[in-house]
Amino acid sequence: MHNGKEYADKSLKEALLAFSQGKKVLVLTEYDDGSMNIDNMEKYFTENTTFFVEVPAIENPEFAKALADMVETGKRQRPVPELKDLPEDEPEEDLDEEPEKKSVDVEEHADPGKACPPPAEAGRQDGRKRGRSSGGQYR
């Protein structure tokens, strides 16, 4: 009991009803990490709070007509091509089939006596990558 008042666990419906009747309602939130938080329900329901409640849709014939007119106008301005006017599709590649391999004459393109230079991103001779610190500034 706190200041002559006691709080009891209630369902959401009962809590909202009590809040709407002007009673103080506390909200206990339990988080995945095991921590908890208690807030006054007033924190969630202030004067500048807007509530959106699901309601049955009401058919608006003016909107439906305006939408249909826009669609029709768009079709006249940019007609949809007939299927016969569309270009033929290119045949798709068979992904299971191996691509045709071209043969390369190694003797023509490379001198076996010369080694290929390492790629630009290769490490230095001491094994470290280029542009990377040795970590010495952290010692």
Rank of each mutant, 00 (worst) to 15 (best):
N3C: 05
K5F: 01
A8N: 11
S11V: 05
A18Y: 00
S20I: 02
Q21C: 06
K23L: 05
V27I: 04
L28Q: 09
D33I: 03
G34I: 05
G34A: 01
M36F: 03
N40S: 12
E42I: 06
K43N: 09
F45W: 07
E47A: 07
F52D: 02
V53N: 06
E54R: 14
A57Y: 07
E59M: 08
E59R: 12
N60G: 00
A64M: 05
A64T: 04
K65E: 09
A68P: 00
M70Q: 13
V71T: 01
V71H: 01
E72I: 08
T73Y: 05
T73E: 15
G74H: 07
R78T: 10
E82Y: 09
D85R: 02
L86I: 02
E98Q: 10
E98D: 14
P99T: 00
K101Y: 09
K102M: 05
K102Y: 06
S103A: 08
E107G: 15
E108H: 10
E108N: 06
H109I: 15
A110H: 13
G113A: 14
K114Q: 13
A115Q: 14
A115E: 15
A115S: 11
C116I: 14
E121H: 12
R124W: 00
Q125I: 08
R130G: 13
R130A: 03
R130Y: 09
S133P: 03
R139T: 06
